[in-house]
Simulated assay, not measured.
Amino acid sequence: MILLRAIGPVTHKLMTMAQWREASEAAGFVAPETLVNTGNMIAGFDGTEAAVVKTMVGVLRSFGLGENVVPVVRKPALLHKLMQADPIAEAAAERPNQTGVYFFASKKPDFEWLKRHDGPETVHVVHDHLIVDFTQDVAQSGKLIRLIDKNCGTNTSRNWNSVRRIADRCAAREKA
């Protein structure tokens, strides 16, 4: 699974999701499928995770996308583990759009700073990912979001609903 960081309406002028799928397939990705929100792809690839990242970076740069558009790669099994852990069950059920899962480019982000976090948000570390119950409109949590960026490095996040839907689609593909 590939999650893109810094993708949105501005980048759509350079690369549509259909173009991304086509270019990914031409680069060796098998049955690329985009889903849920912009910048989510499920695809097979014969190679290491480093090779996936390198190849996908080449695809992205071929469209003229800047270095801020970064692919974050995860195996579908990890999504299933995150869903099973569900440390925010009540929040995920009541306000899934106000819960987030942060995926980091670094394999071992530094979470030491969380010991000092005193915001209204509840933060859980699960398999080196942050799962955040924002408890409010995400836009009200700018301080926490800046701390995550500053302390954990390059990342991308998806709300709980999106992660669940991506995990479900990964499971369906595995069964097919």
Rank of each mutant, 00 (worst) to 15 (best):
D149C: 05
V53F: 09
L60I: 11
N159S: 08
D137W: 11
A6Q: 12
D110V: 01
P32S: 06
I166Y: 01
E94Y: 12
A176N: 11
L14T: 09
L144R: 02
T135I: 07
P9Q: 10
E121P: 04
V101H: 07
L114D: 08
A77W: 03
G28N: 05
E25K: 09
L78H: 06
N159T: 06
A77M: 08
N161G: 00
L144D: 07
T48L: 08
V53K: 13
V36Q: 05
E49Q: 10
H129L: 09
L35K: 06
F63C: 10
T55V: 06
I7N: 06
D128K: 12
L35M: 14
T34M: 04
A50P: 03
T11A: 12
P120E: 13
V36L: 10
T48Y: 09
H117V: 02
A6N: 15
V123I: 14
E94D: 15
K175W: 01
P71L: 07
A92L: 02
H12A: 02
K13Y: 11
M56C: 12
A18G: 12
T11I: 02
E67L: 08
R165T: 10
L4H: 09
L82F: 07
L79S: 03
K115Y: 06
T154F: 02
C170S: 11
P76L: 04
M15V: 07
E94H: 13
N159V: 05
A176D: 11
N159M: 00
S62T: 03
G39N: 01
V59C: 02
L35H: 08
S62N: 11
M83G: 00
T38R: 12
T135W: 01
D46S: 15
S157G: 08
P96R: 02
K107V: 05
H127V: 02
V36R: 00
I148T: 04
D46I: 12
E33L: 13
